[in-house]
């Protein structure tokens, strides 16, 4: 009994609890987005999720020039320089969010807040009627939720114990025991697969892919696991080449065998540029300024190829 209470009091760092989430698993869902990610994907569209610390976003258009933030921050993050220019020294930020507290104009936006497992469960419980009507549930995502493995596992376990369909979305780059524990409490694992060539994977995401592939193989073979969907972010020039998706097809077919009882679902998620404005509010450069979304025909060719390996491809989430 005591241990259960302890798990409920576990604290996590989230950046959003999004209700009416409709692209992160079946039905109408609530998605809890945790902060912190071990990968640095060039195309990342949730850059506010990368850092495991509390940050702030800045929207200069909304600033009314009251300069309360300058007074509030003892670390000199917000400054008006000699030329009267508003300057932001993010490197000085100690994640205390005092500037955000006083910014009623919401020019400064807090990114990241702590919440307990119990609080997260109470929030997702609110929309139970929608899950029940739609076959939906809850998804824990990020960032990388396995960076906060204990929180994630406890959250999934509690949701499932309450009869909520529980899903986790992971990049797979985590110690196997962390993944195994979380997956044991999940009805569905959404598992990202980005690039089959390890050197390319390292170049694109900052880490090699051996751990990810190994985790996927072990997860697939785990007895009693829940459903598994592969998520393939389809990024022009980065991982949209035929050799990549054929390699993916071969790898997955090796897992499933030629006659799997259920065809393994693969969601092809076309690159979009929408994350770019998020980089601006974080004051970060965006590496893929001119990258275009993939052509429909390109992504359809990839889907057809994957279907040829006995997989169940879906374009879009």
């Amino acid at each position: 009994m005591e241990r259960r209470e302890d798990a409920g009091m576990l604290r996590g760092l989230a950046f959003n609890v999004q209700r009416y989430s409709i692209h992160d698993g079946p039905g109408i869902r609530t998605t809890v987005f945790l902060k912190g990610c071990p990968l640095r994907c060039l195309w990342c569209h949730n850059p506010e999720a990368i850092s495991g610390r509390i940050e702030f976003g800045f929207f200069p258009d909304r600033c009314i020039g009251c300069h309360e933030c300058i007074q509030a921050c003892p670390h000199g993050v917000h400054v008006v320089d000699a030329q009267g220019q508003r300057v932001v020294y993010r490197e000085r930020c100690r994640s205390e969010a005092r500037c955000v507290e006083v910014c009623y104009a919401e020019a400064l936006e807090r990114i990241g807040y702590e919440l307990t497992v119990d609080e997260a469960v109470a929030q997702v419980e609110r929309d139970r009627p929608f899950y029940e009507a739609s076959g939906g549930g809850v998804t824990i995502s990020g960032g990388e939720p396995l960076r906060q493995a204990a929180f994630t596992a406890a959250f999934l376990a509690r949701c499932r114990a309450r009869g909520l369909h529980a899903a986790i979305e992971t990049c797979g780059y985590a110690p196997w025991p962390a993944l195994a524990t979380a997956a044991a409490h999940a009805d569905l694992v959404l598992f990202d697969l980005k690039q089959m060539d390890s050197a390319s994977h390292q170049a694109l995401t900052g880490v090699p892919n051996a751990l990810i592939l190994d985790n996927l193989a072990r997860l697939y073979a785990s007895p009693g696991r829940g459903a598994l969907w592969i998520r393939y972010p389809f990024i022009s020039t980065m991982n949209d080449q035929p050799e990549n998706y054929h390699a993916m097809g071969r790898f997955l077919r090796a897992l499933t065998g030629p006659q799997p009882p259920v065809r393994l679902r693969v969601d092809l998620l076309p690159y979009h540029q929408l994350g770019q404005s998020k980089y601006r509010k974080l004051g970060r450069p965006y590496a893929l300024e001119h990258l275009q979304p993939p052509a429909r025909a390109t992504i359809e060719a990839a889907a057809d190829a994957l279907a040829g390996y006995g997989l169940d491809p879906h374009i879009g989430g």
Binding site: H23, D24, F59, S141, R231, P233, Q273, S277, G317
Partner: peptide, 22 residues
């Protein structure tokens, strides 16, 4: 809200060129 896979953003937070895009 603008929603696509694993991502959501408030439309009005997008910069003008991306709003055009949307």
């Amino acid at each position: 809200l603008v929603r696509v896979w694993g991502f959501s953003a408030y439309f009005v937070e997008l910069s003008a060129d991306f709003q055009e895009h949307i």
